[in-house]
């Protein structure tokens, strides 16, 4: 196990916070500098993807198709057909919703080497409301064969996942959040697709999380530890393919599993974990996520509202641990 979080600061909650888009653009520029095949493809989303510097450095290699998501993903597939490695960078709600059939047919089924980067996913757009929330993206894409789904939790994991995606042939979807999050992974962290990372050991209950919610899960475990409950925290950056062994081990070795994610409660990480334990090692699972079109509020407010404040996650875990 990499260095435990407790070694780094008294609480994850007190660490500095980062916008993962910064790690995204820095890493993408590094990758593009090293590999001329890499191009960006956007739908007028240069600013919201923070790609201005990329555009300046590689003016020919940032293709802006305009506000046209179906075309954007089709064009990316065509670029891949010509040997390029396109990183499509667009608000996740429009990328996955508007172009879902292109993702299915042109990218996944055609097995084109396209990297889909869903920017500002989940409820990052907060008060802009459910039209701009992308809580469904994980469930939609999980149903599609041949596409790896990655939900990084911090800048380190965002950069690591991007590097892996660039050197791997095949369709990938990566969520890149704009919500400020603390670093939860070790500096020398290496992303391995389909591999979970146990960030904190524990044998009473397991919390499986990813993305912007993971640090909240770690704080919840800190709180539980203070009252004598030992909570295992599993980071599950790859929703598909899922690390089945780690999930089964958690089901076997602890009294229950809480999943927590910035996504719909139907068909996301929680769904994947539930499908796994029910077939391999039945146990109690509490799925935390967003069960409805959210009311007006910031992303942070809404996560709290849906039981994903550190206190909320701790409460869900406590119920399973003490039952």
């Amino acid at each position: 196990m990499p260095d435990t979080l407790a070694e780094r600061a008294s609480s994850v909650a007190d660490r500095p916070r980062f916008d993962c888009r910064d790690a995204y653009v820095t890493t993408l520029a590094e990758l593009a500098k090293a590999d001329h095949r890499i191009v960006g493809v956007v739908n007028d989303s240069v600013g919201s993807s923070k790609l201005d510097a990329f555009k300046k450095a590689f003016p020919d290699r940032l293709i802006n198709v305009g506000i046209a998501e179906q075309d954007m993903v089709g064009v990316a597939a065509g670029l891949a057909a010509g040997g390029r490695i396109p990183f499509v960078s667009a608000a996740s709600c429009f990328l996955t919703g508007r172009a879902l059939e292109q993702i299915k047919a042109d990218v996944a089924y055609s097995n084109h080497n396209v990297k889909l980067c869903g920017m500002s996913p989940g409820m990052a757009y907060g008060e802009l409301g459910p039209t701009h929330h992308s809580i469904e993206d994980i469930a939609w894409l999980r149903a599609i064969d041949k596409i790896t789904i990655v939900v990084p939790a911090d800048p380190i994991e965002t950069a690591a996942a991007l590097r892996w995606a660039a050197e791997t042939t095949g369709p990938v979807f990566i969520r890149v959040s704009r919500m400020a999050v603390p670093a939860v992974n070790a500096d020398d962290y290496r992303f391995v697709p389909g591999r979970a990372v146990t960030l904190r050991d524990g044998d009473d209950v397991t919390i499986i999380s990813n993305g912007t919610v993971l640090w909240r899960a770690l704080v919840a475990a800190e709180q539980l530890a203070a009252e004598g409950i030992s909570a295992r925290v599993v980071s599950m950056p790859t929703v598909k393919p899922l690390d089945v062994d780690t999930v089964v081990a958690a089901a076997r070795e602890t009294r229950g599993i809480v999943t927590a994610e910035e996504a719909t409660t139907a068909g996301g990480l929680g769904g994947a974990v539930a499908e796994t334990v029910v077939q391999h090692q039945p146990t109690r699972v509490r799925i935390l996520g967003v069960p409805e079109f959210a009311p007006t509020g910031s992303a942070g407010f809404l996560l709290d509202r849906y039981g994903m404040s550190p206190e909320g996650i701790a409460e869900s875990a406590r119920r399973l641990a003490l039952r």
């Binding site: 075309d71 089709g74 064009v75 597939a77 065509g78 010509g82 040997g83 396109p86 042109d106």
Partner: peptide, 10 residues
């Protein structure tokens, strides 16, 4: 057609 446009761009 969008795929063809992408290939022509490449």
């Amino acid at each position: 057609l969008p795929i063809a446009v992408g290939h022509a761009l490449s």
